[in-house]
Write a protein that binds this DNA or RNA. Sequence first.
DNA 1: TTTGCGTATCGAAATATTGCGATCTATAGT
DNA 2: ACTATAGATCGCAATATTTCGATACGCAAA
Lengths: 97, 97
Amino acid sequence: MDLDEVIKALAHPVRRDILQWLKAPEKHFADQEHPLEVGVCAGKFARCGLSQSTVSTHLAVLARADLVTTRRIGQWVFYKRNEETIAEFLRQIGHEL
Amino acid sequence: MDLDEVIKALAHPVRRDILQWLKAPEKHFADQEHPLEVGVCAGKFARCGLSQSTVSTHLAVLARADLVTTRRIGQWVFYKRNEETIAEFLRQIGHEL
DNA sequence: TTTGCGTATCGAAATATTGCGATCTATAGT
DNA sequence: ACTATAGATCGCAATATTTCGATACGCAAA
């Protein structure tokens, strides 16, 4: 886990929102036609009001920091929280701070 | 506590270093002529290799985020960790994330 | 294979952050 | 009042981040 990468990824409200939405997909993405178990479809995050390309960039930052995992199914890409990295971040930041 | 302000303040390695140094002043600033109880003198942070003005700016960012407290004594300004904000940040980030 | 849909990437503009030297302010000592 | 020291602030350059539209790519269906 790259602490610097993770903190910088978290230093943006939209990316924190995305992680929070992914915490309870059934609450925030109940309208998804695909099963939520595989993750949340990238396009669903348009709710933040940003353009498709911007949302994609934010998702890429989260993925680079390993805060989310991605899985491509057909033409869609599904995103899921990576609880391992999140837990390790909380542990490490609690230790370092 | 302004979570956004705090996270952005923490999103820089030098500022995290400063907070860590302040965790054990007797370990990192044993050479200080003033008693460490009042805090660590601003000038002591020059150890990070940055200029005086840059260090001062970093300290200001930490102070604005309420991660440190400042106390002026004569011509010196002493910095101390604000354990309350730090603890609240860890609580909140653990809850939000 | 052409068309369409979902997503990623590119290039560029706007904005924010980082860093420095110079300068200003505040305090202390002479 | 003058000088020195500590620290903050200003102005500016360099770099990074954010955002967008346009375009490229991957996949599926017609």
